[in-house]
Amino acid sequence: MEHPRTVGFLLVPGFALMSYAAAMEPLRAANLLSGKTLYRWWHAGPTGEPVTASNGVAIIPDCGTGTERAADMVFVCAGGNPATFNDKRSFAWLRRLARKGTTIGGISGGPYILARAGLLDERRATLHWEHLPAFREAFPDVAVVPSLFEIDGNRITCSGGISALDMMVALIERDHGRQLAAAVGDWFLHTHIREGFGPQRMDLRYRLGVADEKLLRVLGAMEMSLESPLPRATLARQAGISLRQLERLFHRHVGHGIHQHYRWLRLERARQLLRETTLPVLDVALATGFASSSQFARAYRTAFGEPPSRTRLSA
């Protein structure tokens, strides 16, 4: 008789319920569709008390992070702002599991917590696109990529949302073959199972509602060059049109000019870094293309109605 694989889930307060469900439910479906107990699971919370998801739903865990329960895999499910989670007992528990040979995974913001525990050094990893900029600044020793999920030996990371379903289908296929994996995807009406290396974000043309190819080329270049903003003339050359024509395209399709859009992108990135890293304000300013902390502070206050220091304090 095949020995069931045991999967543990560490639920961090504010975890994303959709990401968690997309990871756990395929295990139940695999058991149901195969007619066998292929997987068992348990849940842990940092204290063993009920853990509340980002939408207010609470789940009662089976144990706290001091548990000695065995597991083949343990996934950390986190959301919101994982940079604020600093429970040393949970970090030590995860390291202890890793030393025992348990496969350790993170979903959505969970990889941030794995990195805080020192479990992703020199590994390839991914996490939700919202956390990627801060993660890259905080953990330069992790080879972070913007994919749906990554399986690097006994470390598994996932960007969250419904990509957790794609990841679990891939793991079920690895454990029990393509036929059962396809049946699980079909069970959840997920007719197109995506590979792990697929992109996380919607194409710019759909995300921003822009169809003009020249403008799309420039918008993509801007998002990739926030630390060292490209001059407007350079952007126009990349589009193959005059600067005046490019400005007209921005006002027609984006609703404001090049400079305003570029500054907004940089300030949004800065706000993420202030919330999710401990970088000094000057380093945040430099990482988003501002020449000084005073210049950055003025632009930030104008955009968000508060100084950078208050955003950092509230985070």
Rank of each mutant, 00 (worst) to 15 (best):
Q179T: 14
H192L: 15
L208Y: 06
A211R: 14
H192C: 04
E195L: 07
F197G: 07
Y206T: 04
F197C: 06
L215K: 13
T191C: 01
D212N: 15
R201Y: 04
I193E: 01
H190F: 07
E213I: 11
D186Y: 14
K214E: 00
G209V: 12
Y206A: 05
A211T: 14
G185D: 10
D203E: 13
L208P: 01
E195V: 14
R207A: 12
V184W: 02
Y206I: 10
T191A: 05
D203G: 14
R207L: 12
K214Q: 08
F188H: 03
F188P: 07
Q179K: 11
G209R: 14
G196V: 00
A211L: 05
A181Q: 05
G196D: 00
R207D: 08
L204T: 09
P199K: 15
F197M: 03
E213C: 12
K214C: 07
Y206F: 08
V184E: 03
A183F: 06
P199Q: 12
D186C: 14
G198N: 11
L180M: 09
H190Q: 07
G185K: 00
A211S: 11
A183I: 10
V210E: 06
R205H: 08
D203R: 14
Q179Y: 06
L208I: 06
H190R: 02
G209Y: 13
V184T: 08
G198D: 13
F188T: 13
R194V: 01
Q200P: 03
Q179N: 04
P199S: 15
M202W: 12
L215C: 08
H192T: 15
H192R: 11
F188C: 10
V210T: 05
L215T: 07
E195I: 15
L180F: 05
M202P: 02
G196Y: 04
P199E: 14
A182G: 02
Q200I: 03
G198Q: 11
V184F: 01
L208V: 13
K214S: 11
F197A: 01
E213G: 07
D186R: 15
L180P: 04
T191P: 00
R201E: 12
A211Y: 09
M202N: 06
R207C: 02
D203W: 03
E213P: 15
V210A: 09
R194H: 09
L180Y: 00
L189N: 15
D203C: 10
A181W: 04
V210Q: 02
A211K: 14
G185P: 03
R194Q: 05
D186A: 14
D212F: 13
W187Q: 15
G185N: 03
